[in-house]
């Protein structure tokens, strides 16, 4: 019984990081109605930024977190102008294809640079023991940082003028424009924020698990599951959805072979899409 409890707690810790990643996806969706299919590639960028900073520059692992937030924001704004700006207001399918194209370019460049072999960043954090069960230090730290970053996002969105502008644009772009909000800049910034969140979640994931250039796809799918659980366009729901997914993974692990977990996830994903198109945790209208 305690064994299950331990894996449930670990699932929740990891789930918080999934939630952070999904927040990036859902923020972009909510503000500009674009499903960012380059999401997974950006998670991978976050992983390799950690690898480069720690292995090549010898930075402490968690020093990469603020670096990645800034870098992710800058990359995001760049990607917005390259691939997203012209898609605003065009059919959804076009922005899907466009962001997928960005995904291909990023993954392609990554593969050429780092190949597809696995990488691992050694992060030393003391573990916590409790009744004979150890909880990995990196998992606890990653979850704590994820919650802190989510809290900062909340403050930014709900207690600053910038956040107000973002929410105004999300609600009604034309009206926001008429009120003198520079909507294009706000969209670019929101995309930058979303990318920064996805990237930093990649950095946190890389402190916990080994990764390859192609890892992004799995985490992208997890983010989709989470956003669908939490309701597309709903950042608070994303964190809860992430924790729910972590919980499900944690609960499922002791009972079934590892190779069946993806089936459960994808099945859950398709099921939730069909059964709860607005999300399970969407208390408020996005």
């Amino acid at each position: 019984m305690i064994g299950i409890l331990a894996s449930v707690i670990d699932g929740i810790l990891i789930g918080a990081v999934y939630g952070l990643a999904a927040m990036g996806l859902t923020l972009i969706w909510g503000v500009m109605n674009v499903i960012n299919l380059a999401h997974g590639a950006i998670v991978v960028v976050g992983m390799f930024v950690l690898y480069m900073l720690v292995s090549a520059l010898g930075l402490p692992a968690y020093g990469a977190v603020p670096v990645m937030i800034v870098l992710g924001f800058v990359i995001g704004i760049g990607l917005y102008w390259i691939g997203v700006h012209r898609m605003i207001g065009r059919p959804e399918l076009m922005s899907l294809l466009s962001t997928f194209a960005l995904n291909m370019v990023l993954i392609g460049l990554g593969t050429a640079w780092w190949t597809t072999s696995p990488y691992n960043v050694q992060v030393n954090m003391p573990s916590v023991s409790w009744r004979g069960y150890t909880f990995t230090g990196t998992h606890i730290t990653a979850a704590a940082l994820a919650v802190v970053i989510a809290g900062l996002l909340y403050l930014l969105l709900y207690h600053t003028r910038i956040g107000k502008a973002v929410r105004a644009v999300a609600t009604n772009r034309e009206a926001a424009e008429l009120c003198g909000i520079p909507t294009t800049q706000v969209l670019a910034m929101a995309f930058g924020l979303g990318v920064a969140l996805a990237g930093v979640s990649g950095t946190l994931i890389a402190t916990m698990f080994p990764f390859t250039v192609l890892s992004g796809e799995a985490y992208q799918l997890k983010s989709f599951v989470v956003t669908v659980l939490g309701g597309l366009g709903n950042p608070a729901g994303a964190l809860m959805g992430g924790i729910a997914l972590g919980l499900i993974e944690g609960l499922a692990t002791p009972f079934m072979p590892v190779s069946w977990i993806p089936i459960v996830e994808f099945g859950l994903f398709v099921f939730c899409l069909i059964a709860f198109p607005r999300g399970i945790f969407s208390f408020t209208k996005a």
């Binding site: 499903i35 899907l96 799918l221 069946w260």
Partner: peptide, 28 residues
């Protein structure tokens, strides 16, 4: 009849899920 109840982007996402789920099923 099931997944086509979804519109636009939601359908596109579901098709990714279907492909991956079936791949994993076949693996098992």
């Amino acid at each position: 009849l099931g997944i086509l109840r979804l519109r636009g982007a939601f359908f596109a996402l579901a098709t990714i899920g279907v492909n991956q789920a079936i791949q994993q099923l076949v693996v098992n």
